[in-house]
Design a protein around this nucleic acid. Sequence first.
RNA 1: GGGGGGUUUCCCGAGCGGUCAAAGGGGUCAGACUGUAAAUCUGAUGGCUUAGCCUUCGCAGGUUCGAAUCCUGCACCCCCCA
Length: 427
Amino acid sequence: MQDIIAELAWRGLIHQTTDEQQLRRRLTEGPRVLYAGFDPTADSLHVGHLMPLLMLRRFQRFGHRPIVLVGGATGMIGDPSGKSEERNLLSVETLAHNVESMQAQMRAFLDFGSGAGQAVLANNYDWMHRFGVLDFLRDIGKNFPVNVMLAKDSVRSRLERTDAGLSFTEFSYMLLQAYDFVHLHKEFGCELQIGASDQWGNITAGIDLARRMHGVQLYGLTCPLLTKSDGSKMGKTESGALWLAPERTSPYKFYQYWINVEDADVVKCLRYFTDLAREEIEALDAARAADPGRRESQRRLAEEFTRLVHGEGGLAKARRASDILFGAEIAALSDAELGEIFADVPSHEMEMQSLTAGLNVVDAFAAAGLAKSKGDARRTITQGGGYVNNRRVAAADTTLTASDLASESVMVLRSGKKNYALLRFRR
RNA sequence: GGGGGGUUUCCCGAGCGGUCAAAGGGGUCAGACUGUAAAUCUGAUGGCUUAGCCUUCGCAGGUUCGAAUCCUGCACCCCCCA
């Protein structure tokens, strides 16, 4: 079989593996079963989840069988890995809802059809919820030396802090995840677990458990965390994570995020998130080095990634919105068109009468929420930072009338390069 | 318990009776440059009905024509002695 490890390696997706030579041999000898787990912490996946999820997809394309595990059980406990503080427990109803939503999204990334490599959707709640405490402690807990558990980074870093503790509940998280691996091995012959680098401790815990309980050798592989060249987290916006659910992060915002990726990070993202071939990515990188101003890499990344997550339709909307927002004067559009293009833009209602009577731009900007106060609005406009329908406002004493509408009843205001707000005029 | 220092506009930090809406820096916002980038440069940065007016310098009073600046009390923070 084709060497998936080599593929992942050039993409920079391998952070750590257990016994790489042995693992590579297993994976080239024949199709294997592997899994990655996702706890239902929200009702949508975000880009961070895509690192392992897309990795599963790559494995599947190389002929292996992926299992996506949604942690209906582990989500009830809370993974301390990579978390600096104890988390609040989610309610059972919330968890059930989250599991359902996340599973629905995952279906788009893997092939769940028939055939040897068909993906499997699993939920550890199914096998955990009837596991009795006594049985669990005797059969599973007995295999975990506490000193080893204490040595794991996820635990140690929390114990070293004086301002944040670690409950027994979170402490025992790794037992559950370890058991998942053993269970999936028994049930599906799963022998590899992948995850982000902060999952290393939990993965090795599962490998140890399998060896102790059944004397079998399992494998682990982690991918790097998604970070920018300056070390900060990638995939975060001012308003939080970059979600896959279009209701949470619109295709436009998603597209814009990737269009704006810094030069230093763009190649990495192309390798991580697109299916482009190595030669193509290298060509894009070379083109970027030669003429960074064209930002071909960013365009391509945004395009490929938006298409992958939101489909052709989502990509088309995102591009259209981008063209208009960063384009020329906005005029002769319909309310419906504007509504769609500016779906993300905050809007404020005003009486049509106030417009027909003549509306001062300063008041309009303040009302639209683009300025903290009228003084702030006046300042922005005086400095040349105010735009109506993408046309710069010349002076602060400009009066807007019905002829300044971009469509039947909507006016598009902008402060600076990309802060938009809509004013909708009610009759 | 005794002695000393402090609390300033989003943050840090000057100010020590009028010229203080309050220096400087950071942040933020806008402009120029540019690649919807970074860096850099420029401007702005309490509110309003903006040649003016109103509110702001821990809180409450007082002195004064006039206080962020002086006095009294209160609250909180820091340091030193016990």
